[in-house]
Design a protein around this nucleic acid. Structure first.
Lengths: 337, 337
DNA sequence: TTCGCCCGTCGAAGCGCTTCGACGTCTGGC
DNA sequence: GCCAGACGTCGAAGCGCTTCGACGGGCGAA
């Protein structure tokens, strides 16, 4: 293994000079810098990560905790993870993958052993048991999603409340008067996952504000339940003409179910969703949707963390990404009664 | 930060004794071990990962390289990653996540900086450009999938050739004489991804062996192309009664397409697939399938790596998991002509 | 011209851990 | 009863890097 002393000797300087030439933490003459880099290149030198971490108390590794529970859409998690890794690399960091399963002990382990410099958590619940731990940990963290109290923590997410509102307002603007929200599986609400509840809040608030009649239906993510909920909606709200879907796997089956029940989309029924653009576009009838910008959230989360690690500047505790609605083929004006 | 000398002092022993009590690399008396563990617990001691890595030249971290290219089924990748992380933890290792995008440079970086002890690669191609690199790297690796020549490397995967055969034989056993394979998207073959080709080989070989008439159809993973390929199959092979699907996202749409074209599954057409059990069971008509055991492959891959790291025992270069076919509702005997 | 200061570089002191050799103390086999 | 060897522990020497204080030379200000 080639080490920093080898490089130093080869370049005719001291090891500390090599270190400074690499980190830029002290001024080094152009000439010396060049020789050092030449030596590095010729010898194929790579600094030893462990030694570096020990001496600098920075591992340049971020922890990413991914959820693996029921009711979360896997591709979203994956896209998110990829965006975190990609962004981390731009800032010269790597990403350690942890599963939610390891729980608080896992967080404490990677933080306390200095394996990682900072943490990113997904799938935050309203009263997440990890919250107190994160506050005591001496390493910065960013959470995707908002707990009930984010005091002293850093959170980022799509503004799901505004997203729910945005969908309703889009429908209201098209003249729809009776709307329904087909939501995430019941267990997601039971766990009090913040984002699901906020969609409901926004949906309901906007419906009330606009004088619409509205209902909310948590729903399993199976094709069978798509059919069931479609039938139920038509039975209970015969005048229904607008639907908001916040349940990725259900989107396509639900539209199928409505059409099989004789409703044309968007002729008889306008459908809008909160989901990744990619999904909204791949449905048979492209769906008007508020984008779930997982890649952007991932990028922003990493950037927040890097700034926190950089010290100096403080970062905002809350970052809410404004919803962006794209009108597609699945929504249209309410047919004349 | 509490360090090993603190623990040593608190337990009334020397730091080396603490180290040995923890690693078990030298005999320590029961009494001393107890005192050491008490001290560790009372002080909340956690060994510093960097220091440990530096002194022992073992980071206890594995690299996992995930693909993010088109044509691979995301949930499979995710399930795989989760199983790798979970298994790694059982052997006291963590997992660093890399994207294929970083390429060979990424592998070299994490290996040469001693950030990781070993590597797991997914989505291996027949003539994968990373092969020569892996051979020169001084760290062990395991590949998911088989390149053209695996000389000197360690590979593991489902035996896709046997899986293709198994599907055909199941159909042949039910009396079917004309079969078709609906495969992965064309780009997967163009890239010469090993597993896709092996399915074709097995499928064709078994069909020939059994005297069946057969065709192969690479296919995009979009609902539209499901319809298209279904129509084409019926047009070109009117006597078709057996289909093997090796394309996860297409499975459900394809069955839908066949039924919309007036074919009952399994009445008129028997369908079998190579896909995760979970998917096969969630389709409207549960599909007879050869399981894609991503979780098991992940587990086995980690275990191979751990054994390689342990030195001593050598591991097999090739591990082929035998296919396991589960008969479900989508296949039945060929109707009397 | 001289003083002070910045620039560029060096040497040495760790960072917290593992591991090697050494050493005293038992034990058991002959 | 003695020696070989195992057992249990210790001290010290690094692992490869960063960082701190120091220092000589050059420059501008006085």
């Amino acid at each position: 293994m080639v080490k920093i002393t080898d490089v130093a000797r080869h370049a005719g300087v001291s090891p500390s000079t090599v270190s400074y030439a690499l980190s830029g933490k002290r001024p080094i003459s152009e000439e010396t810098r060049r020789r050092v880099h030449e030596a590095i290149h010729e010898l194929g030198y790579r600094p030893h990560a462990g030694a570096r971490a020990l001496a600098s108390s920075r591992s340049n590794v971020l922890a990413l905790v991914i959820p693996l529970r029921a009711g979360i859409h896997i591709p979203v998690v994956m896209q998110f993870a990829v965006s975190v890794v990609t962004t981390a690399r731009r800032y010269d960091h790597d990403v350690l993958l942890l599963t939610q399963e390891e729980g608080e002990e896992g967080l404490r382990r990677v933080a306390d052993t200095a394996l990682v410099d900072a943490l990113i958590l997904m799938d935050v619940q309203l009263h997440d048991p990890r919250l107190p731990l994160l506050r005591t940990l001496e390493r910065p963290s960013v959470m995707i999603g908002f707990p009930a109290s984010s005091e002293g923590l850093t959170c980022i997410d799509l503004d799901f409340k505004a997203a729910g509102e945005r969908c309703v307002e889009h429908l209201a603007g098209l003249g729809h008067r009776v709307v329904a929200l087909v939501g995430s599986p019941p267990e997601v609400y039971v766990r009090q996952t913040a984002f699901a509840q906020r969609v409901v809040q926004g949906f309901t608030a906007a419906a009330d504000r606009n004088g619409l009649s509205s209902t909310v239906h948590p729903c399993e993510a199976t094709p069978g339940s798509a059919r069931a909920v479609a039938e139920r909606l038509l039975r209970e709200q015969p005048a229904l003409t607008g639907v908001v879907v916040h349940n990725e796997p259900l989107l396509e089956p639900l539209i199928d179910a409505f059409e099989q029940l004789g409703l044309r989309v968007p002729g008889d029924l306008s459908v809008t969703a909160i989901c990744p653009d990619e999904l909204a576009e791949s449905v048979r009838v492209p769906v008007t949707s508020v984008a779930l910008p997982s890649a952007e959230i991932g990028t922003r989360a990493v950037e927040l963390l890097i700034r926190k690690l950089g010290g100096g500047s403080t970062v905002p505790e809350k970052t809410l990404l404004p919803p962006r609605l794209t009108a597609r083929a699945s929504t249209g004006p309410r047919a004349a009664p």
